[in-house]
Design a binder for these strands. Sequence first.
RNA 1: GCUCACAUGGCUCAGAGGUAGAGCACUUCCUUGGUAAGGAAGAGGUCCCGGGUUCAAUUCCCGGUGUGAGCUCCA
Length: 607
Amino acid sequence: MSRKKMDAIAIKHNDEIIDLQTAAALGIEGEPIELDNSDDALEVLRHSTAHLMAQAVTSLYTNAKFFVGPVVKEGFYYDFKVDEEIGEADLKKIEKQMINLAKKKFEIERYEITMEEAKLKFGNDELKLDVLKRIPDSKVSIYKQGDFEDLCRGPHLPNVRNIRFFKLLKIAGAYRGGDSKNEMLTRIYGIAFADKETLKNHMTMLLEAEKRDHRKIGAEMKLFTFREEVGAGFPIWLPAGARLRARLESLLFKAHRKRGYEPVRGPEMLRADLWKTSGHYQNYGENMYFTDIDDVEFGVKPMNCVGHIKAYEHDLHSYRDLPIKYFEYGVVHRHEMTGALHGLFRVREFTQDDAHIFCTLDQIEEQITEVLDFVDKIMSTFGFDYKMMISTKPEKAVGSDEIWESTIQSLKNAMDNNKLPYEIDEGGGAFYGPKIDIKITDAIGREWQCGTVQLDSNLPARFELEYNGENNDKIQPVMIHRAILGSFERFIGILTEHYAGEFPMFVAPTQVAIVPIAETHNAYAKELSDKLIDLGADSEIFSKNESLNKRIRTAEKGRVPMIIVIGDEEVENKTIAIRDRRTREQSNMSESDFLSLIHKKINEVNF
RNA sequence: GCUCACAUGGCUCAGAGGUAGAGCACUUCCUUGGUAAGGAAGAGGUCCCGGGUUCAAUUCCCGGUGUGAGCUCCA
């Protein structure tokens, strides 16, 4: 063996990670995988770390039985059960034991047995028997380190001593096989890296994510609140949050108008018959709220499309009118599972930046392209990277397979022709059509699902929509449903975490904090504040009867993008002193320069 | 929806089977200040809701509501 192979922890053969044990047994050769932070290396490392954890748990607790312990996106986990209760506090103890075991430098050995032998070997371990039931093969592999053995497909490290930089993160319950009908097992999540530095950075990131939690920052900045007496999942927007939201709304309103969208508005509740026509009643009914009015059943809208369809139906349309683009900040209600509710990210009432484009078949591609350009403009403005996914026909769906196939193809064409990369999510589409989902990546690397573009020929068919063609023939239009932010609620939640509450001036709830030094400067403060309102900027004057230091501190903590201080000098010379919140340094400028700076900053964004 | 945990002034939290406390915030007064907490006094709580156990429940038990974590990423 070459020196390089001595350092390898596994090899890559035919694009598959094969551990050294298996490679030796089968005589396979391939590219060496070294112990670094590459995806391949981490997969092996984390998998073995999960096993080391299992070994530690086995040695610390009685009657430990293990279910599955896979590597997942943010680390690894192992589901198991033991006779004792395990809590958060025990993680340290288990970690310590893992370190002790790693120091013993056990070789990780692999051998194969037949399914029958395995069933015999794990005869009194109902969890392993369950796992075995799910394996179609006639042979299974066993990995052994010290006196600990586990049924496992691998791949694994050659030796446990390679496991050094890891952390057990949390402990939670998880149903066996993810099915709530089954018993609850204990699940411990952990993470591992090749070096200390990366582990440390990862832990810092997790801490940072916690600090950025929009529920915490939202409360601190008085953006929104939830109240038990109001009901779960129904947000209350406080003045600061409502100002931020209004800024977003107005920026976006202009952007829509420039791109040829017309505002429309549908009612919150529509007769249930309409939801039967649309298919929502049958396919989405369990997420909807229904009520009776004078013995007629009504459904609260979970989507805005039906309202927009009714707007379309008001007129006869010519092919010359298309595309018709209707948009609405549409308030929708959806019955989400209680356990799924989470701050502004998952609520039961929210407002979508929703639009429906009615167009001809020929216009689909260009319209999709235009929407994707709109998406790009907005997401890059906020500094989000994003990627796109095409979702195909789900189990519960309306419309023929032919329609589905052709519409999916149009989406792919639009993406391909614009050289946009995408992934496919099989079965992830809406019940009425395929969609492109936009997943954005925030400042600390987390992914979020926001916008969505959905192609739909089913609703136009169900509602028998039509336009007059060149030969005065009746033709059915296609609908494109699209939302870019997704919902104001979720998007503002994401923005809050993305910026850690330090919003850029064009969306910040308050643009300027004005701190007058003494009472005699209040009048000038008010004068500035009025001028700012004329520019379209909000300010807050910190003139309470507190020490200057206290008021500066309060202003700083408010995360307002710009703080200005005014005293005798400023009043006399018509200047202002700007304080940089980050460096805590001051600089002076004339009032007019200041006002034009603010004007520039709040107008520098144009979607 | 399911499992577990939690629920005490506006916020963050302490506390005991005998009807409650701190810090911040709030109010008033003093302080009239040049860049991250000046001082004093004060107001504010059906201890989430309903039922049970008890001489006595905010505290223990049951149910509900709300919140948090997890339940999808398959040896």
